[in-house]
Structure formats: structure tokens, C-alpha cells
Amino acid sequence: MSDLATASYLAQADNETRLNKTLRPPFDVVHRFSAQSIIMTTIAAILLFVFLSPILLVVAVSFGEKIEGASWVWAFDPSNYARVFVGIGWPDEITLLYAYKLGYTLAYAVLGSLIAIAFAFPFTYFLSQCSRPVQAAWLVFILASLSMSEVFIVMGWDIMLSNRSGLPALFKATGVTEWLKETGWLAVLKDWGLANPRNVKFKTSQMATVLTMAYLVWPYAVILLYAPLSRIDRSMIEAARTMGAGSFTVMRTVIVPVVRIPVMGTLLLLFVYLLGAYVTVTYFAEPAHQTLPVSIYEAIRGATLNAPFGAAQAVVLLSTAGVFIFASLWLSRLAEKRGR
């Protein structure tokens, strides 16, 4: 065998070992694989324990049975659900107290999210047309207001709407109250629950509740609408403009069809978020117009102490939210399919 052949043979052998090296998992890969699976298993366990089990527990506890004057025991007792919908005396009598609470919960959440979207949509559309640094500055502002706790926001609105300082005092000082009295509008406002014989009164009222809720989710609406609105193909708008379409026509024929589904998705997310609003309702709605979250708290930590009943109400709230979350997922799937 010539030297050349030997060399080529050696090179080939060397290549083969190299090839083998890359094909066969070296020792450290095996080692790392197990480390990795340990990490992922640990994480899965944490997720199951802290992320998932609370939700399952709520469902399990909701079938428990309350013992008078004591705590409660595990059971399979659907009467808590019956109580939410038709009252504790069912089937002899029907009380709709909690059904009404559910109704108020839904009504506030629907109105609050609709009002928020109505103002957030044009705002976000204009925002997406600004230059990138301007957008970033606005986004800092929006995020900072978004992160304000419900407690702080209620505090601000409370000062603004309270009778001693805030809007009613302002109305009185500027003579608006007198004018309302003279023109008879004060009587109308009184019928709507927004005035007492002396002055306007915004606290407690359903209007204050809904408006504070809308305020609460307005920044969320902007953040959620920002992605779809800033991704609109600008050339389509310009093409429409070139062909003589006015702003309104552009909005109707180009923008709305593209963002219709994301807007619906945003609306649903805001709605689900508002279903759980607690501080606003305890503060701005009178007891007769309060919502499920308030009575959930009462049942679990507050005055009535009936954990299974509280859990049942939470499950009702959760299923309502669940139905809407699935609807929004389905809508975004639909949007993806259309986008392709």
C-alpha cells in the first residue's frame, strides 16, 4: 500500500470517527438530556400544583356541604348551584337574588367593555399612525396607567365623584346645580338615581360603577388593539385614498374588515376581566346592585362564611368566563385562517 493510499485511508477513518462522534450522542448530551427532563418535570409539577390545582379545588369545593354553625364537609351536593340560580328554598319558592347578581355582573362587564372599546379604538388607530418614538412614549403612559391598582383608581374616582369635593361640589359652585333645578333636569336625574333633592349625586350609582369599570380596562383595550391596528397594511389605505375614498370609507371598507375579529377578541377579554371586578363594585354600587364577586368574597372570607356556596358562585363566574374565552380563541383561530 502506498503512502498516499495509507493517508487517504487514515483520513477516511478519521472522517468516520468524526461522523460517528456527531451521530452517536456523546456522554454529556445524555447527561444534559436527563438534567433537562428533570427541569421540565419539576416545572410541570409546579404548574399542576400552583397553576391548575386551585381551579380544580374551586370546582371540588363547590359540591361540598355546609354544616350549620360549623365549617363544611366534602360531599357531592349540587344544591349550591341550585341556590345560585333559583335560591335556597327551591323548589318550594324561587328567589332570584343571586341570579340578579349574575345579571348585574354581566351587565356591568358588557357595558364597561363596550364603552372602553368605543374610545380606545379611535385612540389606538391614531396612535398607530404616529412615529415609532412617539408611539413608545404613549405606550409608557398607557402601561403606567394600566398598572395602576384598582384600589388607586377607585380612590381617584371616589374623590372626583364624592359630594364634599369633586364634581357635585363643582356643579354647586359654578351654578350648574341651580340651572339644573330651574330647568327641571335635577328631577330627571333624581329619577335616574343620580341626584338627591339638593344636588347631583354620583355615588353610589350604576353609572359610576360602569364608568369606573370602563376606565379600568381602557388601557388594556389600547394595548390589545395596538398589535392588530399597527399591523394594518398601510399601502391598502393609501391605495383606497388614491382611488378617492374618504376617511370614513377607508375606515368602513379597509380597516374595519381587517380588525373586526381582533376587536371582538379584545372585547371578550375585557369582558372576562371585568367579570371579576371587586373594589369598584363594593365602592360604587349600592348593595342591591352588587355583583357575584362581592358575594363570593362574603361567602369565603366575609360575613356569611359558606365556602362551598362561594365556590359554586365562583364556578358559575368561571364557566361564564370560560364560554367567552373559548369564543375568543375560536375567533382568533378564524382570524388566523383568514390571514393565510
Binding site: 416545572i43 381551579i55 377579554l269 372576562v272 365556602a307 363566574l317 368561571l318 374565552i325
Partner: peptide, 23 residues
């Protein structure tokens, strides 16, 4: 895992709070 990790944020917080207090 991704779905599970995002789940609590998508629920009404009060429901998750109730569940955690049970846990």
C-alpha cells in the same frame, strides 16, 4: 405547559384567588 402557564392570567382573578386560598 405553555397553555397551563398562561391559564391563571386568563381567568377572572377572583376565581383564581378563591382557588389559591383553598389550596
Amino acid at each position: 405547559l405553555t397553555g397551563l402557564a398562561g391559564l391563571p392570567f386568563a381567568l377572572p382573578p377572583i376565581v383564581f384567588g378563591v382557588g389559591l386560598s383553598f389550596l
